[in-house]
């Protein structure tokens, strides 16, 4: 039997790595990938708690499923935006899109 702490630790590390990626990366697509990592970490948390703590209520599992679905939607939408930005500026680097400043 695997203690729940193992899963939680994995999720925490994965989330922190994803977070780092979001902050450190320049390319919009890489940032998107890092966001996927964070979402996956959250999913792991949901499922671990659902499976260990409350298997009857089922809510965590549904949440996880929705996270997957919404992540898919988000990737689709975000890639659309990235394409758009790329077409406007010939670049997909987020720090090139900095016209909204002083």
């Amino acid at each position: 039997m695997i203690p729940i702490e193992n899963f939680l630790l994995l999720s925490a590390l994965l989330f922190a790595i994803g977070f780092y990626g979001v902050l450190a990366r320049r390319s919009a697509i890489l940032i998107l990938m890092s966001v996927e990592l964070m979402l996956a970490a959250v999913s792991i948390n949901f499922i671990a708690f659902a499976a260990y703590m409350d298997p009857e209520a089922f809510t965590g599992l549904i949440f996880a499923l929705f996270v997957i679905a919404i992540a898919a939607a988000e990737v689709g939408l975000a890639l659309g935006i990235v394409l758009r930005v790329f077409r406007e500026r010939r670049s997909s680097m987020v720090d090139d899109a900095s016209s909204l400043k002083w």
Partner: peptide
């Protein structure tokens, strides 16, 4: 900075998650 934030966040989460005593049951 991102590196620092990531490390700190991992620490905070680890402390929060592992500091709690979870019941020793298996997954359903």
């Amino acid at each position: 900075f991102a590196f620092g934030v990531g490390i700190l966040l991992a620490l905070v989460f680890a402390v929060a998650l592992l500091g709690h005593h979870w019941p020793a049951v298996g997954p359903a």
